[in-house]
Write a protein that binds this DNA or RNA. Structure first.
Lengths: 195, 195
DNA sequence: CACTAGACCGACCGGTCGGTCTAGTGTGGT
DNA sequence: ACCACACTAGACCGACCGGTCGGTCTAGTG
């Protein structure tokens, strides 16, 4: 009974983890199978679409995970800077505890997604949902409406870039530096009364 | 005489282009060879280190190319915003003319570089050189010294993230949005007298 | 107890991977 | 004329790729 849908879930979680760290092309199905302790045939029972379906669902799962994380951080934050700090703290912990292999669960796949449109679309969808979430939150914090989209996009872009730099450098310094400057930018956009 | 070192150069240029668009794992040596019109033996004559050497040199070449580009843009710019605009304009053109496959020549490889340290180190080196260049330029524009590193890192991170978002979205809007917000951030750091 | 549906299994497929090896080929030095 | 050598060339290798296949096992049903 524990294996009812557990096998499928385990395959997906393992694949998502490996894709996040090694990329889509860089991860073989046999590696996923070995790590999840699942034979080949079982994979194709649960994911008839093969590797591509696995990739799309892994990106969707990663997207949903981060979205939930952002939602709770935003809900619990009194000011934009608090939500920003919370986000950075979590990613910093992920980087450090994984020897700088776990960054954004979407970015690695995203940059390889040229030539496979379903994969690209899944990444796009994830990024859009995060951007929308951030833009809405900025509205709550009384940031002028004409800057919601620009600022939300910039916040996401800066964090994504900082995660990339931090991974390559094996140091969270770029993430911290970016967070400090983002805070300057965001605070300046919040009316003094709402700060 | 045209083929003196031309073959090697052609292999490297082809590989760099394919790595940039499809990633390291996603690009097979046979694809490089076919695109460069070069047989296999020739590749291993010029690159005895195999695919890894090709990857490292491709990243270095991409790093040098962008560094040269930044240098000339910075030298020709009166204010920080001008250099920023020039950079964004070039990347926007690259994205649009390549159907959104040509972004940063380092980023795609960088995110796959976990598990291959020479590759990771080459990416790190490229990013460091760009950051140093930007930080030095900020000094010329009289940005306070204690913000050089943070700002330079943030500018690079934001551009990298924006390029990623633009590729996935197949739209330059994220790049433009990020550029506008970066300009706000940078202009605010330049003393009014120097602006 | 016969039957069925679907989860699960792993041998096997053609193709491609990165990499090696040997056989030319053209050119410059002597 | 000769050789040495940098270079070109592609046949070839074992390993591994993503994917398919026929089949077993088990829980549920009439």
């Amino acid at each position: 009974m524990t294996d009812e849908k557990d096998t499928r879930r385990r395959i997906l979680a393992t694949a998502a983890d490996l894709f996040r760290r090694q990329g889509y092309s860089g991860t073989g199905l046999s590696q996923v199978l070995a790590a999840a302790q699942v034979p080949k045939g079982t994979l194709y029972h649960h994911f008839p679409g093969g590797k591509e379906q696995l990739g799309v669902e892994a990106v969707r799962a990663g997207g949903a995970e981060i979205r939930a994380l952002l939602e709770s951080l935003i809900a619990g934050a009194g000011r934009p800077g608090d939500a920003l700090d919370g986000t950075v703290r979590l990613f910093r912990a992920a980087l450090e505890s994984s020897d700088y292999t776990e960054g954004c669960p979407v970015a690695t796949v995203a940059l390889e997604s040229a030539g496979c449109d379903p994969l690209r679309a899944a990444c796009d969808e994830a990024y859009r949902s995060w951007t929308d979430l951030i833009a809405t939150a900025l509205g709550r914090w009384e940031v002028p409406a004409d800057r919601h989209d620009d600022l939300a996009t910039t916040i996401l872009a800066t964090l994504e870039g900082a995660l990339l730099l931090a991974r390559v450098r094996r140091d969270t310094a770029p993430l911290d530096a970016a967070a400090r400057q983002l805070r300057v930018l965001v605070d300046a956009a919040v009316p003094a009364g709402a700060r």
